[in-house]
Design a protein around this nucleic acid. Sequence first.
DNA 1: TATTAAGTTCTACCAGGATAGAATAAGTTA
DNA 2: TAACTTATTCTATCCTGGTAGAACTTAATA
Lengths: 119, 119
Amino acid sequence: MIIKLFDSELKVMEVLWEYGDTTAKRIAEILKEQVGWSKTTTYTVIKKCIEKGAIERKDPNYICRPLITKEQVQEFETSELINKMYDGAADQLVASLLDSRKLSSQEIERLKKLINDLE
Amino acid sequence: MIIKLFDSELKVMEVLWEYGDTTAKRIAEILKEQVGWSKTTTYTVIKKCIEKGAIERKDPNYICRPLITKEQVQEFETSELINKMYDGAADQLVASLLDSRKLSSQEIERLKKLINDLE
DNA sequence: TATTAAGTTCTACCAGGATAGAATAAGTTA
DNA sequence: TAACTTATTCTATCCTGGTAGAACTTAATA
């Protein structure tokens, strides 16, 4: 399933991913605290997420449950970046990362292991 | 230098990166052809790029010259993604790429080489 | 120099995402 | 059931990026 989430929607999803299934009320409290959102804002955005199929809310307790994982969104956003900035070539992105020294030596070690252990 | 380029600005920059230094007129022609932009739109966006320091235009021929490279923008956009979606950890992004099978086996081979040859 | 054409800027409109106040619905308790 | 609280939606505003028409300026040419 491919859904483009806006930044505001992402904020709501992140609460769910971090805190697990919970009520709209609770999400509102958390976002009030974290980013100062009014209760209404949170409810509006939750509604959008439900309409988009990113959240479902079933009786009896009206618990909000994410229908997409953080990994799915990561993948989607990453694909967008690759298409927009790297001509669709994922390896160019990695090459650029290695190149730009954005990775610490520990990270590089970890990746080296990852990639060599592949398949 | 850190500049956030909007999508429209990126279009102009991409023309410069691809075609090399050239006149506003030429850029307008290309973007007219490529994406249907009116001449005015192109000029407006070029102006924004100049104000932002992404393009310079010097006498006598009013040639537009990019002041930032595609690589810089790639790096910037990639950083944004990493911060937004991967808690600032670049290696998580790479791990996710390996995981999601976005990379062909050729690409993986190439990366394996790249990473093992590092340092 | 007058006329025309090309280059550039000024200004404005439009769409969409972010945000929230007021209104309404639903649930609770006396 | 009335009074009150809490949950939810309706509607609207604001802001910003994308886009371009009209006006203006500069250059070319008759």
